[in-house]
Amino acid sequence: MKQPLVPVVPMSHTAHIRSHRKPRRTATSTIAVRAGVAGGVLSTLAVAGASSAANAAEPVTQTLELPTLTADLAAQVAQSADATQQAAANYQLRAERDAAAAEAAKQAKADLAEAEKKAEARKKAAEEARQAAAERAARDAERPSLTTTTTASASVSAPSSGSVATVLAFLQAQVGDAYVMGATGPNAWDCSSLVQAAFKQVGVDLPRVSQDQSMVGTDIPLSQIQAGDILYWGGKGSAYHVGVYIGNGQYLDAANPSKGVVIQDLSGYPASGAVRVL
């Protein structure tokens, strides 16, 4: 039995050459190609992202540091301004103090010259008053029954005792002097230093302060006080002010900084008590 004949298809004249055959693309190769392409894209994106992140990181760092530097600089400028302002204020205050001190020194010099001028006049008057008092004392010693006469000031009674007259004459010479706490003359006094200095003229040593001066001598009722008695204000032993009674309802004292040494009416400022040492 004859086999059926199979038709023979003629081949291309280049079919036997391998390089001219069109290769068949398999699924595996297609996947590999796609994977390679995707990997390349992802690598590119990763590099670009990393570069962008690196580039972006530097401005962020600078942006965070800039406010800190600015704040520090602002604080330094503010501190410098404050220091400059404080220094200017200190210079101005010092200048004002220097100007005030210079003015005070100028005024003090003028006041001192005026005080010295007045002091000379008072010393001369005091010397004349002492001489007059000594003469009166001599006459009074010879005439014990002689009534009292008046001194140069109509407000001051001259007692028969020469010692009291000397005390009053000294006090009269100090009228117009300044009151300065703690001062002891010759041109400024406080209340107790003036009383102490007055009685020292006749050899009587009194304590320095008002409290102690109110404790010396003999207590005298205010209704029986005489010229030359020491008046005090406050409690006995705790007096805060003293003066000397000069007669005619008046006393002489270093009153206060605004008045200085003056003669005042006892009715305007009644004393608390009195003591007699002469």
Rank of each mutant, 00 (worst) to 15 (best):
R18K: 12
Q92R: 13
V33D: 13
D72P: 01
S29T: 14
T30W: 09
E103A: 13
Q85T: 13
E65L: 09
E96A: 10
A57M: 03
S51Y: 02
E128T: 04
A105Y: 12
A56Q: 05
P23T: 03
A57I: 02
T44M: 15
L64I: 04
D98G: 02
I31E: 05
A74G: 02
T63I: 04
A46T: 13
N90K: 10
L73R: 13
E128I: 00
S19K: 12
E96Y: 10
S80M: 11
H16M: 05
V41G: 11
N55L: 08
R18H: 12
Q85M: 10
Q131D: 06
E114D: 11
A78K: 01
R18Y: 05
D98P: 01
A125Q: 06
A99I: 00
T84C: 03
A75V: 07
N90D: 15
R25H: 14
A50T: 15
V77T: 08
A126V: 01
Q131K: 08
A48P: 00
A101D: 09
E135L: 05
E96M: 12
A89V: 11
A137S: 13
T70G: 04
A129T: 00
S29D: 09
E114R: 15
S51N: 07
D111R: 07
R94G: 07
A46W: 05
T68S: 11
E103H: 06
L66A: 15
A126I: 03
E114Y: 10
L112N: 14
E127Q: 05
V37D: 08
Q85R: 14
A113E: 15
A56Y: 02
K124Q: 06
S51E: 10
R97Y: 03
K117P: 00
A27G: 13
I31D: 02
S52V: 10
S43V: 15
A87Q: 14
A56L: 04
A74C: 01
A74Y: 06
Y91T: 10
K123Y: 02
S51R: 11
L93Q: 12
A100R: 04
T26A: 05
R97D: 07
V47S: 13
T30K: 11
